[in-house]
């Protein structure tokens, strides 16, 4: 493996491109120059910080530190899922449903992959564990957030139909079957699309990174296939689990629709 190390001058040259773009937007009065520069500075600071954290983690490879890092990643992803909900659940459920299903899906799939497929030694080797978990969390997060948002929006919009069906003696499962199915499907679609387009429309980021790092393309492709399958499984199980938990929470033990358990819309 050989990597061409980047120097400060190389990065500065790339930064010049961004500065040039900022100048052009200023001239064209697009009024985005400021946010462009702030975003660029944030990229530098955040990535440097995470690079330092990862370097420290790799140098002091202990299960405790890896677990702590994983926990922080999970909690941030859980918050992100909640923040993306138009109508989120009140109380601990608002944060809990997304976080719990990500814990089960992303964590379980990562641990399974580390122990049975990739097999580093020790199995929690941060060089493998953290990037794997990061990719899984990033994707399950999107799937779970989409699925939950679809479900709560649809149930809110269709509450008259749901209650009409309950009043006719339908079970809550029957009264929400279309909505639950559509929500689960919308959580799965991004992953299915990504798998279908992989390599044809876009070169997946991880594979590209490995190739840049000098890995033989066929090796990189094998990793990418593994990751794609893990992501599909994690996102799918996560979205299904989240939609199921959320729909259970939307009804009480007498199968009454409990929209009072949702916060009103933010708009």
């Amino acid at each position: 493996m050989s990597v061409i190390s980047l120097g400060a001058v190389d990065l500065a040259l790339a930064a010049l491109l961004v500065l040039a773009l900022a100048g052009l937007t200023l001239w064209a009065r697009l009024a985005v120059g400021r946010s462009l520069l702030i975003a660029a500075v944030r990229t530098v600071l955040q990535l440097l910080l995470v690079g330092l954290v990862l370097q420290t983690l790799f140098d002091h490879a202990q299960l405790g530190w890896v677990a702590l890092m994983a926990a922080v990643m999970l909690l941030v992803a859980g918050y992100e899922v909640m923040a993306r909900q138009e109508r989120r659940f009140a109380g601990v459920w608002g944060y809990g449903i997304g976080t719990a299903t990500m814990f089960v899906s992303a964590f379980a799939v990562t641990v399974l992959a580390l122990t049975t497929m990739v097999g580093p030694s020790p199995w929690w080797e941060p060089q493998y564990a953290i990037p794997l978990l990061g990719m899984l969390l990033g994707n399950t997060m999107t799937g779970i957030a989409l699925g939950l948002d679809r479900l709560t929006q649809a149930v809110w919009r269709e509450r008259r139909v749901i209650e009409g069906r309950l009043a006719l003696g339908d079970s809550w499962l029957c009264a929400t079957s279309t909505m639950r199915r559509e929500a689960a499907r919308s959580g799965l679609m991004p992953t299915i699309n990504a798998m279908a387009a992989a390599g044809v429309v876009s070169l997946p980021g991880m594979m590209t990174g490995q190739i840049l790092a000098g890995v033989a393309p066929v090796e990189a492709v094998k990793y990418q296939i593994l990751i794609m399958f893990l992501i599909a499984a994690g996102t799918g199980f996560g979205a299904l689990g989240a939609v199921w938990l959320a729909s259970v929470r939307l009804f009480d033990q007498r199968s009454r629709l409990r929209l009072d358990r949702l916060h009103p819309g933010r708009r």
């Binding site: 008259r160 139909v161 209650e163 009409g164 069906r165 009043a167 006719l168 003696g169 279309t178």
Partner: peptide, 13 residues
């Protein structure tokens, strides 16, 4: 089913 609620606007899906 035994205690049937019928709203002012019935729901159709």
């Amino acid at each position: 089913r035994q205690v049937a609620y019928v709203p002012a606007e019935t729901a159709w899906w």
